[in-house]
Simulated assay, not measured.
Amino acid sequence: MKKLMKDLGHEYADILFYTPSEFEKLGGLWPLRTGHNVAKANYSVGPRVIECYSFHFVLSGAVTLSTMGETVTLTKDSMFCLFPDVKHSYWVSQYDADEPLRLRWLAFTGPQAELLVSRIGLTERRPYMRNKLTAELSGLLQGCMQRMDNSQNEGDLQLQSMLYRLFELLSRPLPHAAEDKDWLRACLRHMETHYAEGITVADVAQFAGMNRSHLSSRFKDSVGMSPRDYLIKLRMERAGEMLRSRTLSVTEISHSLGYTDLYTFSRAFGTFYGMSPSKYRARLFLPNEMLNE
């Protein structure tokens, strides 16, 4: 399928609208529209809401997404989901004429849509994944567009099977070859850089483009502890260092390490060190002869 893209002012785009048949609506999932574009320097969409789900895949360049009070920049091979009735905006990041932002999208709905989106780990608060656009997935997206363009809208079973295949591919972890080489080093570096910012295991899994349970299992096999325990270890070791300074209160230290309240921090500290932060600090400054008594 070769079409000339239309000049829509802020982008060149090829957009295809699809009307599902009554037969397709008896199923759990059906497409509504698809397309791909090449963004211009002034490319910007929103703020707006849409009535369905829409997957957007970054073919090249970078896009900045803003939704639910969060803003994130996504680069090549990343994807994001627009949720129905959730306000969002997205725009081109650092326009480069040699490598402009190019997107491919697929909008869909149906009674199973919400469950399927949730099963692959996307939420309204975290609607994106990195490093997910494989060659197989890219080919499937192009195939979906071709089927939608050529379908007679009488219940295209192949198109329906392709939609479910899309979710199956998105649920896969990264290929093992890439994982074995890079995933652990990248995760450790990410955790050691951002542990004080309140990141969770789910955040690390999203960063790595891996299923959370798969990440936890492989991380524990490689490191000897779960990613949750490793994050706690990083925070507690830093807490011990910070308690050696008398310039910060225990509350200030807890906030500096990403804890939202003192109780949660103190409980984690007590589990790790076997004493409260205050007692730990007091022992640091006791005379040696008192510690030996």
Results as ranks from 00 to 15, higher is better:
residue 204 V to I: 15
residue 246 R to Y: 08
residue 251 T to G: 03
residue 252 E to M: 10
residue 245 S to C: 11
residue 192 E to Y: 03
residue 168 E to K: 05
residue 172 R to E: 15
residue 159 L to N: 03
residue 231 L to Q: 07
residue 186 A to T: 06
residue 256 S to T: 08
residue 159 L to W: 01
residue 264 T to L: 12
residue 215 L to H: 00
residue 188 L to W: 07
residue 218 R to S: 02
residue 159 L to G: 07
residue 241 E to M: 12
residue 221 D to F: 00
residue 193 T to M: 07
residue 223 V to C: 02
residue 156 D to S: 02
residue 214 H to Y: 10
residue 244 R to F: 08
residue 174 L to H: 04
residue 178 A to W: 13
residue 156 D to T: 01
residue 196 A to K: 06
residue 194 H to N: 07
residue 170 L to Q: 07
residue 180 D to C: 05
residue 237 E to I: 05
residue 177 A to E: 15
residue 241 E to H: 11
residue 249 S to D: 10
residue 170 L to F: 05
residue 209 G to H: 03
residue 165 R to N: 04
residue 160 Q to P: 00
residue 158 Q to A: 02
residue 216 S to L: 01
residue 178 A to H: 11
residue 229 D to Y: 09
residue 174 L to W: 07
residue 159 L to Y: 02
residue 201 V to T: 05
residue 167 F to Y: 11
residue 218 R to H: 06
residue 229 D to W: 13
residue 231 L to V: 07
residue 251 T to K: 05
residue 247 T to Q: 13
residue 171 S to M: 11
residue 180 D to N: 15
residue 237 E to V: 04
residue 185 R to P: 00
residue 176 H to F: 07
residue 266 S to P: 07
residue 216 S to D: 04
residue 227 P to Q: 05
residue 171 S to R: 13
residue 210 M to F: 00
residue 230 Y to F: 12
residue 173 P to Q: 01
residue 170 L to C: 13
residue 203 D to A: 13
residue 173 P to L: 02
residue 250 V to P: 10
residue 176 H to L: 10
residue 204 V to M: 06
residue 165 R to H: 09
residue 182 D to Y: 08
residue 246 R to M: 10
residue 250 V to M: 08
residue 174 L to A: 15
residue 165 R to G: 04
residue 156 D to Q: 01
residue 240 G to Y: 08
residue 214 H to S: 12
residue 173 P to R: 01
residue 184 L to I: 12
residue 166 L to T: 09
residue 175 P to M: 06
residue 219 F to Y: 06
residue 198 G to T: 08
residue 209 G to V: 03
residue 185 R to A: 14
residue 229 D to A: 15
residue 227 P to R: 03
residue 207 F to H: 09
residue 215 L to P: 04
residue 266 S to D: 11
residue 175 P to E: 10
residue 172 R to F: 14
residue 247 T to C: 11
residue 178 A to V: 12
residue 164 Y to S: 02
residue 262 L to N: 14
residue 182 D to G: 02
residue 180 D to H: 12
residue 180 D to W: 08
residue 249 S to R: 10
residue 187 C to S: 11
residue 246 R to W: 06
residue 220 K to V: 01
residue 173 P to M: 00
residue 244 R to G: 15
residue 258 G to R: 00
residue 158 Q to R: 10
residue 222 S to P: 02
residue 189 R to D: 09
residue 219 F to M: 01
residue 190 H to Q: 14
residue 224 G to M: 01
residue 217 S to G: 02
residue 246 R to N: 13
residue 237 E to A: 08
residue 194 H to C: 01
residue 165 R to E: 04
residue 215 L to S: 04
residue 232 I to H: 15
residue 226 S to F: 02
residue 244 R to S: 09
residue 201 V to A: 01
residue 229 D to K: 14
residue 235 R to F: 02
residue 257 L to I: 07
residue 253 I to P: 10
residue 206 Q to L: 14
residue 155 G to M: 00
residue 168 E to P: 02
residue 179 E to V: 08
residue 244 R to H: 14
residue 258 G to P: 00
residue 235 R to N: 06
residue 204 V to E: 11
residue 168 E to R: 05
residue 210 M to Q: 10
residue 173 P to D: 12
residue 264 T to D: 15
residue 245 S to Q: 14
residue 223 V to S: 05
residue 209 G to D: 09
residue 247 T to A: 13
residue 220 K to W: 00
residue 215 L to K: 03
residue 244 R to I: 04
